[in-house]
Computed example of a mutant assay.
Amino acid sequence: MSIEKIVEQALQDGYLTPTMEVEVGRICDNASELSIEEYMALDRLMGALLTGEVVAVPRKQFINVMEELVLTEAIARITEIEATSDTTLDVGDIAAYALNRLPPLYATTEEGANYQRQRAKTELHDFISQQVNEAISLNLNQPNDNKTPVSTKNTGNEVLQQVSNLLQVYAPNFEQKSNNLKPI
Protein backbone atom coordinates (compact mmCIF):
# COMPACT_ATOMS: atom_id res chain seq x y z
CA MET A 1 0.00 0.00 0.00
CA SER A 2 1.31 3.50 -0.80
CA ILE A 3 1.77 6.34 1.67
CA GLU A 4 -0.98 8.29 -0.08
CA LYS A 5 -3.47 5.42 0.30
CA ILE A 6 -2.54 4.89 3.95
CA VAL A 7 -3.02 8.59 4.71
CA GLU A 8 -6.30 8.62 2.79
CA GLN A 9 -7.51 5.60 4.80
CA ALA A 10 -6.41 7.17 8.11
CA LEU A 11 -8.23 10.43 7.27
CA GLN A 12 -11.36 8.50 6.26
CA ASP A 13 -11.36 6.27 9.39
CA GLY A 14 -10.15 8.90 11.83
CA TYR A 15 -7.38 6.71 13.22
CA LEU A 16 -3.90 5.46 12.35
CA THR A 17 -3.41 1.81 13.26
CA PRO A 18 -0.04 0.38 14.31
CA THR A 19 -0.01 -1.60 11.06
CA MET A 20 -0.48 1.58 9.01
CA GLU A 21 2.25 3.29 11.01
CA VAL A 22 4.67 0.40 10.44
CA GLU A 23 3.91 0.36 6.72
CA VAL A 24 4.58 4.10 6.40
CA GLY A 25 7.86 3.58 8.27
CA ARG A 26 8.83 0.67 6.05
CA ILE A 27 8.15 2.67 2.88
CA CYS A 28 10.16 5.62 4.20
CA ASP A 29 13.06 3.39 5.26
CA ASN A 30 13.23 1.57 1.93
CA ALA A 31 12.85 4.61 -0.33
CA SER A 32 16.01 6.41 -1.34
CA GLU A 33 13.90 9.52 -1.91
CA LEU A 34 10.21 10.26 -1.40
CA SER A 35 8.11 11.93 -4.08
CA ILE A 36 6.45 15.34 -3.62
CA GLU A 37 3.08 13.55 -3.34
CA GLU A 38 4.40 11.32 -0.57
CA TYR A 39 5.78 14.31 1.36
CA MET A 40 2.46 16.12 0.95
CA ALA A 41 0.55 13.06 2.20
CA LEU A 42 2.85 12.78 5.23
CA ASP A 43 2.35 16.49 5.91
CA ARG A 44 -1.45 16.02 5.77
CA LEU A 45 -1.18 13.06 8.14
CA MET A 46 0.99 15.02 10.60
CA GLY A 47 -1.47 17.92 10.55
CA ALA A 48 -4.41 15.58 11.11
CA LEU A 49 -2.60 13.91 14.03
CA LEU A 50 -1.79 17.29 15.59
CA THR A 51 -5.37 18.56 15.32
CA GLY A 52 -6.89 15.30 16.55
CA GLU A 53 -8.69 14.65 13.27
CA VAL A 54 -6.74 11.37 13.19
CA VAL A 55 -5.90 9.49 16.38
CA ALA A 56 -2.94 7.12 16.59
CA VAL A 57 -4.02 3.81 18.09
CA PRO A 58 -1.55 2.65 20.78
CA ARG A 59 0.70 -0.19 19.71
CA LYS A 60 0.15 -2.80 22.38
CA GLN A 61 -1.57 -2.70 25.67
CA PHE A 62 -0.56 -6.28 26.39
CA ILE A 63 2.39 -8.54 25.76
CA ASN A 64 2.76 -12.21 24.97
CA VAL A 65 5.53 -13.36 27.30
CA MET A 66 5.85 -16.56 25.27
CA GLU A 67 7.24 -14.50 22.37
CA GLU A 68 10.18 -13.23 24.40
CA LEU A 69 10.85 -16.67 25.90
CA VAL A 70 10.85 -18.34 22.47
CA LEU A 71 13.03 -15.61 20.96
CA THR A 72 15.53 -15.92 23.81
CA GLU A 73 15.69 -19.70 23.40
CA ALA A 74 15.86 -19.52 19.60
CA ILE A 75 18.61 -16.90 19.56
CA ALA A 76 20.69 -18.89 22.06
CA ARG A 77 20.38 -22.09 20.01
CA ILE A 78 20.93 -20.34 16.68
CA THR A 79 24.04 -18.60 18.01
CA GLU A 80 25.48 -21.97 19.07
CA ILE A 81 24.78 -23.51 15.66
CA GLU A 82 26.05 -20.56 13.62
CA ALA A 83 29.24 -20.33 15.70
CA THR A 84 30.18 -23.92 14.86
CA SER A 85 29.04 -24.13 11.23
CA ASP A 86 28.55 -22.14 8.04
CA THR A 87 24.77 -22.41 8.43
CA THR A 88 22.61 -19.30 8.64
CA LEU A 89 19.21 -19.70 10.27
CA ASP A 90 16.21 -17.36 10.17
CA VAL A 91 15.19 -16.39 13.71
CA GLY A 92 11.74 -15.27 12.53
CA ASP A 93 10.95 -18.58 10.83
CA ILE A 94 12.11 -20.58 13.83
CA ALA A 95 10.26 -18.42 16.38
CA ALA A 96 7.04 -18.44 14.33
CA TYR A 97 7.13 -22.23 13.97
CA ALA A 98 7.65 -22.72 17.73
CA LEU A 99 5.09 -20.07 18.72
CA ASN A 100 2.44 -21.75 16.58
CA ARG A 101 2.88 -24.87 18.70
CA LEU A 102 3.06 -23.25 22.14
CA PRO A 103 0.37 -21.68 24.31
CA PRO A 104 0.30 -17.86 24.46
CA LEU A 105 1.08 -16.22 27.79
CA TYR A 106 -0.47 -12.75 27.70
CA ALA A 107 -0.07 -10.11 30.38
CA THR A 108 -1.18 -6.49 30.69
CA THR A 109 1.10 -5.40 33.55
CA GLU A 110 4.73 -5.94 34.42
CA GLU A 111 3.60 -7.87 37.49
CA GLY A 112 1.50 -10.16 35.28
CA ALA A 113 4.38 -10.57 32.84
CA ASN A 114 6.74 -11.55 35.67
CA TYR A 115 4.19 -14.11 36.87
CA GLN A 116 3.85 -15.57 33.37
CA ARG A 117 7.66 -15.68 32.93
CA GLN A 118 8.09 -17.54 36.23
CA ARG A 119 5.27 -19.94 35.40
CA ALA A 120 6.69 -20.64 31.95
CA LYS A 121 10.20 -21.22 33.29
CA THR A 122 8.98 -23.81 35.78
CA GLU A 123 6.21 -25.47 33.76
CA LEU A 124 7.02 -24.94 30.08
CA HIS A 125 10.81 -24.61 29.71
CA ASP A 126 11.34 -28.13 28.33
CA PHE A 127 8.36 -27.82 25.99
CA ILE A 128 9.65 -24.46 24.68
CA SER A 129 13.12 -25.97 24.10
CA GLN A 130 11.60 -28.96 22.34
CA GLN A 131 9.57 -26.78 19.96
CA VAL A 132 12.53 -24.49 19.19
CA ASN A 133 14.75 -27.51 18.53
CA GLU A 134 12.13 -29.02 16.24
CA ALA A 135 11.83 -25.71 14.36
CA ILE A 136 15.61 -25.52 13.95
CA SER A 137 15.79 -29.11 12.77
CA LEU A 138 13.08 -28.51 10.17
CA ASN A 139 14.69 -25.23 9.12
CA LEU A 140 18.05 -26.95 8.62
CA ASN A 141 16.41 -29.64 6.47
CA GLN A 142 14.48 -27.20 4.25
CA PRO A 143 15.84 -26.39 0.78
CA ASN A 144 17.47 -22.95 0.66
CA ASP A 145 14.76 -21.55 -1.63
CA ASN A 146 11.99 -22.28 0.88
CA LYS A 147 13.16 -21.88 4.48
CA THR A 148 9.74 -21.39 6.06
CA PRO A 149 8.46 -24.73 7.37
CA VAL A 150 4.78 -24.78 6.44
CA SER A 151 3.73 -28.12 7.80
CA THR A 152 5.07 -31.49 8.76
CA LYS A 153 3.47 -34.83 8.19
CA ASN A 154 2.86 -36.49 11.53
CA THR A 155 2.33 -40.15 12.12
CA GLY A 156 -0.22 -41.26 14.68
CA ASN A 157 2.56 -41.90 17.24
CA GLU A 158 3.99 -38.39 16.80
CA VAL A 159 0.57 -36.81 17.30
CA LEU A 160 0.01 -39.01 20.35
CA GLN A 161 3.40 -37.91 21.74
CA GLN A 162 2.54 -34.23 21.19
CA VAL A 163 -0.80 -34.65 22.98
CA SER A 164 0.95 -36.51 25.78
CA ASN A 165 3.49 -33.68 26.11
CA LEU A 166 0.70 -31.11 26.27
CA LEU A 167 -1.14 -33.09 28.93
CA GLN A 168 2.05 -33.39 30.98
CA VAL A 169 2.50 -29.63 30.78
CA TYR A 170 -1.09 -28.67 31.59
CA ALA A 171 -2.08 -31.48 33.92
CA PRO A 172 1.11 -32.66 35.61
CA ASN A 173 -0.64 -33.76 38.81
CA PHE A 174 -3.43 -35.70 37.14
CA GLU A 175 -3.15 -39.44 37.61
CA GLN A 176 -5.55 -41.99 36.32
CA LYS A 177 -5.94 -44.72 38.93
CA SER A 178 -6.92 -48.04 37.47
CA ASN A 179 -8.63 -49.23 40.66
CA ASN A 180 -11.15 -46.36 40.42
CA LEU A 181 -12.22 -47.28 36.91
CA LYS A 182 -15.32 -49.37 36.47
CA PRO A 183 -16.01 -51.24 33.26
CA ILE A 184 -18.85 -49.89 31.17
Rank of each mutant, 00 (worst) to 15 (best):
T122A: 05
A83Y: 08
A107H: 05
Q61L: 10
N179W: 07
T108A: 00
F62D: 14
N173A: 09
T17Y: 05
K177H: 13
I63G: 00
Q61I: 15
P18K: 08
M66P: 00
T152C: 07
A56I: 02
G112Y: 14
Q9A: 10
K153G: 00
M66C: 07
T122V: 06
T108V: 06
E123V: 09
R44F: 00
L49K: 08
G156L: 15
N179S: 06
D43F: 01
N165R: 10
G47P: 03
L140T: 07
G14C: 07
A83Q: 14
Q130W: 04
N154S: 11
S129L: 06
T108N: 04
N146C: 07
E158A: 14
S2G: 08
N133Y: 12
I36V: 15
A76P: 00
D126S: 07
E53D: 13
Q142C: 13
V7G: 07
E33V: 08
L99R: 12
P183D: 05
Q176F: 12
D43Y: 10
G25Y: 04
Y15F: 03
R117N: 08
L11E: 14
N144L: 14
M20E: 11
L166F: 09
E123T: 13
Q12P: 07
V54A: 00
K182D: 06
C28V: 15
N154R: 12
P58A: 08
I128Q: 05
V163W: 00
T148W: 07
Y106L: 05
L89V: 11
M46Y: 05
